[in-house]
């Protein structure tokens, strides 16, 4: 265990792998750099002194751009990525399979169905403010349905995944039907949402998402130990005194909640949840709290970088971050599959 240290203080005891946390710190530094770059770069180019001045006076024109446009949007992206990555990490543990992701359990499909339904049927009357709620609700409902369908005196990862895929296909069909029968403009805005974008994120969005994410993190604290044991066979886990079904249900609900809120504010950025945990595992082989932290940081960096790329690469266009998440994720994912197939 290399540089593992044990901290003991009365009854309190912890194993801390310093090297792992050092790597997390480095990753965090990189994330901060991306954040700064995201603040510095954009359509309105600012020189370094201008930028510093703007940073100090939030009231000025340039200050407004920084404080009211770029910062909340970047933070929103970071939070969305962090939540998706954490959700993906949890699900890959629980499903005992590195290919599991929030998509697999119908989270994204459920969120998409209700969000698109809201967009088509309700947005004209009540405005689009409640769309995150609809999406989060859809995500949670879908996962509950999947769990219910897979429950037969308990669930198994295989049954959960299959039910998730079945329900996803069904829900996508419903979404498609709604889209086919709605006007083209609505369809298009629905697609932008489906691709995933943090365009126009404001402070209230950031506040809400941060609060939800914070609650989820606190809820995760006592569960980390159990999440680390989740890859064990049911028999082994029961043998060492884990309440398998109870733990699995709790962890899945937590993961679904995380993905739900992320999708609610950031749209369906499918690949963060799949890829970020892999990158984290690549950087830190040993499962543990540090790996979770790493997944969160990597997820946040990925979405921030994707959002930045979307703003910078094709200047007049402000492309949705989800596009670049897919563009980064695809080669990585294909490489992974090739490696696994061997």
């Amino acid at each position: 265990m290399g540089e593992a240290r044990v901290l003991r203080l009365g009854r309190l005891s912890r194993v801390v792998v310093w090297r792992a946390w050092r790597r997390v710190a480095v990753a965090l530094l990189v994330a901060l750099l991306i954040l700064l770059a995201s603040l510095a770069l954009g359509e309105a180019a600012l020189s370094a002194p201008q930028w510093l001045a703007a940073l100090r006076s939030p009231g000025s024109g340039a200050g407004l751009i920084l404080w009211q446009l770029r910062l909340p949007r970047t933070l929103l992206g970071a939070l969305v990525g962090a939540a998706l990555a954490l959700s993906g990490w949890l699900l890959q543990q629980v499903m005992r399979n590195p290919l599991a992701s929030p998509d697999t359990l119908g989270v994204t499909a459920g969120a998409a169905t209700l969000a698109v339904g809201y967009l088509v049927f309700l947005a004209a009357d009540v405005g689009s403010a409640w769309m995150p709620l609809a999406a989060a609700l859809g995500a949670l409902l879908a996962v509950l349905l999947v769990m219910l369908a897979a429950w037969r005196g308990g669930t198994t990862p295989l049954r959960l995944v299959l039910m998730g895929i079945g329900l996803s296909t069904l829900l996508s069909a419903v979404t498609t039907f709604v889209l086919v029968s709605s006007p083209l403009t609505t369809t298009l805005s629905a697609y932008v949402w489906l691709t995933g974008s943090v365009y126009g994120g404001n402070w209230s969005d950031v506040g809400w998402l941060a609060a939800c994410f914070g609650v989820a993190l606190v809820a995760l604290m006592p569960l980390v130990r159990l999440a680390l044991l989740a890859p064990l066979d049911d028999g082994l886990a029961v043998g060492i005194g884990v309440r398998v079904q109870w733990t699995r249900t709790l962890l899945i609900l937590l993961a679904a909640g995380l993905a739900g809120i992320a999708v609610a504010w950031g749209g369906a950025m499918a690949f963060v949840g799949l890829v970020a945990p892999h990158v984290a595992r690549r950087l830190l082989r040993q499962p543990g709290a540090a790996q979770i932290a790493m997944a969160i940081v990597v997820g946040a960096s990925m979405t921030m970088a994707a959002d930045l790329a979307g703003r910078l690469l094709f200047p007049p266009l402000d492309l949705p971050a989800g596009l670049f998440v897919a563009a980064i994720g695809a080669p990585f994912f294909l490489g992974l599959m090739m490696k696994q197939a061997r």
């Binding site: 290919l99 998509d103 995944v161 697609y191 691709t195 492309l319 596009l323 897919a326």
Partner: peptide, 21 residues
Amino acid sequence: ILAGAALSALFHAFSQALLVI
């Protein structure tokens, strides 16, 4: 099955992205 699902998601993501552009 998971590989297939992920591959589908990948293809869909690109289709949607192209569409948005």
